[in-house]
Design a protein around this nucleic acid. Sequence first.
DNA 1: GCGTTATAGTTACATATGAAACCATTTGCA
DNA 2: TGCAAATGGTTTCATATGTAACTATAACGC
Lengths: 152, 152
Amino acid sequence: MSADHKPDHAPIELEHFLPYRLSILSNTVSQAIADDYQQRYDLSVTEWRVMAVLARFDGLSAREVAERTAMDKVAVSRALARLVEAGRVNRGTHDGDKRRSVLSLSEAGWQVHDEVAPMARAREREVLAKLDQEERAWLTRILDKLQPVRQK
Amino acid sequence: MSADHKPDHAPIELEHFLPYRLSILSNTVSQAIADDYQQRYDLSVTEWRVMAVLARFDGLSAREVAERTAMDKVAVSRALARLVEAGRVNRGTHDGDKRRSVLSLSEAGWQVHDEVAPMARAREREVLAKLDQEERAWLTRILDKLQPVRQK
DNA sequence: GCGTTATAGTTACATATGAAACCATTTGCA
DNA sequence: TGCAAATGGTTTCATATGTAACTATAACGC
């Protein structure tokens, strides 16, 4: 009820606090997309991300997938276990290195990808539609500056 | 290795995909802050958020805390259980409604708050320091437009 | 070649999180 | 009043996630 201001304690105003705002926004956006496919395809966000990189980069190892998705290797391992189990990803062994896996989308995997990708893109467009051209350009520029480009 | 482009499948480029970028950025920023206090004060992010709103709004109920933190009531309930247990939050019962709790920071709670808040603010400044004045203004404007201002 | 160290990936454990069921109290209304 | 529906909050259960330990293979130094 009463919004007591305590000047001596300088409390943080969450609604203006960048980390908090980013967290809310990120969750809202990701959740909206996930809602589209999560139950329908029995596919988690991490699994979807793995599929997305395999769609672009065929034959990656699990470690490389982890790099490209910015997920840790355990998460990738688990996502892959489910994806292989579901027949959405083919897993082979690297010729010269038996530790490495060689991953690619299966036919079924491509089918799922080709249905989910447009939905994800559509949701992104919905979000970006709230901004005008100039704002979108600034957003890209700002994200580029804030993001410690970790492309290895 | 080979970055095969599959025009017939139109894979998503994660590194340009807004939801993905937001997710990475949000995690990076939040984690950096959490690292400052997490172990040192045995305080989780959710607990810290609860403390932050109680610092500003004294006497809230658990539900009101949930509203203000955009967390669900289960998460708030758990965070409060730990905070009360640790003696950082005082929990009373509302006069006219025995279901409601009446929450406020204890002395110890204020002490923790007064140490953590400056650290959080400093981290935020570090992030924002990567942007110039104009970019910061745009960022605020963009977040305002993307965020469906859910102040009830 | 052979032992040490590094790397790819999985497993185990402990903790976090969300959904639904649940209890207590209060509200709405016949 | 008195009872059905709503609300505040907690507990339960199933699942997700992170850290550390572990297995297998490969690379390095000599």
